[in-house]
């Protein structure tokens, strides 16, 4: 009974996870093509690609900001790495791409932290700039990555698990460690939780604010490089739709948009939900246009249930699940 109760309590707190498991079971039963090794390993690749970008976004959101330029940064860096490959080789191409992302992120960060320009405007501006730069690089057309070693990054599998997903998980563990156990991580929570308190506690707030945008840009660039390796092409608009999906994923997981709260495991959960929905609809052979409508509705209702039950708990009213748990 005791285990029952703690399991139940866990799911009361983690309603999104519960919702995901239920939907997962339903779709597995309903569609033959869903619960197959091929499809699931495909799902993990998607989670890995979006997840990497979401890790950077998680830092930004915990720190009380967000980066609208993350998606276009994926497009830009996929183009950059593809074009550099042939000229300088794999490792330099990747390093140069990451370095460019670092510099661009630093520009954003300094504009927000030092020049005190609203981050929405700064990242919106850089979003447009990055889109333009990505298109300019290849004159509007994609660039093939004709380099077997590089393409191997996207194709490699260990067991049936893609190398991309493994890279994502390694980065996730590193981010978890940084956020939970380092001074750097703690101070990011502090500036997101209360900027003024952080400042008056002697935290170098400008540095941390700027780092949020650097991290977001660099992680997005990693996403872009992996994307290019996966599809063997640098594509000037491939990541443009990713920004909103990634922000939504982070927030669905439960990281608060107001900052100071959340963690990367929640991001993993949120991105998983987002990727699962797209994948499941394809498996269920639902017409793509209506997919978007249903997807939107599911996202809103899942979060609505979660925040509704949270306000209930704050007021001291118990939900159905907690009533069951009390009886156990």
């Amino acid at each position: 009974m005791k285990i029952c109760k703690s399991v139940l309590n866990f799911f009361i707190r983690e309603k999104i996870l519960l919702a995901l498991l239920v939907m997962f079971a339903v779709v597995s039963a309903a569609a033959d093509s869903f619960f197959t090794v091929g499809n699931l390993s495909n799902l993990l690749i998607q989670v890995g690609l979006y997840g990497v970008v979401a890790l950077g976004m998680t830092f930004a959101i915990i720190g009380g900001d967000f980066d609208l330029g993350a998606g276009p940064m994926v497009s830009f860096s996929s183009m950059a790495v593809a074009l550099l490959l042939g000229r300088v080789g794999v490792v330099p191409a990747i390093l140069i791409t990451l370095f460019i992302a670092f510099c661009l992120g630093l520009c954003n960060g300094l504009l927000v932290a030092k020049a005190k320009i609203n981050s929405f405007i700064v990242t919106f501006g850089s979003m447009v700039i990055l889109q333009g730069m990505a298109l300019t690089l290849g004159d509007g057309s994609p660039a093939a990555t004709n380099h077997p070693a590089f393409n191997q990054i996207g194709a490699l599998q260990i067991g049936r698990i893609s190398f991309i997903f493994i890279i994502f998980m390694v980065l996730l563990l590193a981010c978890h460690w940084i956020l939970r156990y380092t001074q750097f991580g703690r101070n990011i929570y502090a500036i997101g939780g209360n900027y003024e308190v952080a400042r008056s506690s002697g935290i170098h707030v400008d540095f941390y604010k700027a780092s949020l945008f650097v991290l977001s840009a660099v992680f997005a660039a990693v996403g872009g490089i992996l994307m290019a390796a996966r599809v063997n092409t640098g594509h000037p608009t491939i990541g443009d739709d990713m920004t909103m999906t990634v922000i939504a994923g982070v927030v669905i997981g439960g990281t608060s948009l107001s900052g100071g709260k959340g963690n990367v495991w929640r991001t993993l959960l949120g991105i998983f939900v987002m990727m699962f929905l797209s994948n499941a609809f394809d498996a269920l052979v639902i017409q793509p246009y209506i997919q978007r409508v249903i997807k939107g509705l599911i996202i809103i209702s899942v979060v609505a249930i979660d925040s509704y039950s949270k306000t209930k708990i704050d007021v001291g009213d118990a939900g159905v699940l907690s009533k069951i748990s009390k009886k156990l």
């Binding site: 929570y189 502090a190 939780g193 209360n194 003024e196 308190v197 952080a198 008056s200 100071g260 709260k261």
Partner: peptide
């Protein structure tokens, strides 16, 4: 509340 503590901490 505004300036002394990070209440979420």
């Amino acid at each position: 509340k505004e300036l002394g503590l990070v209440l979420k901490f």
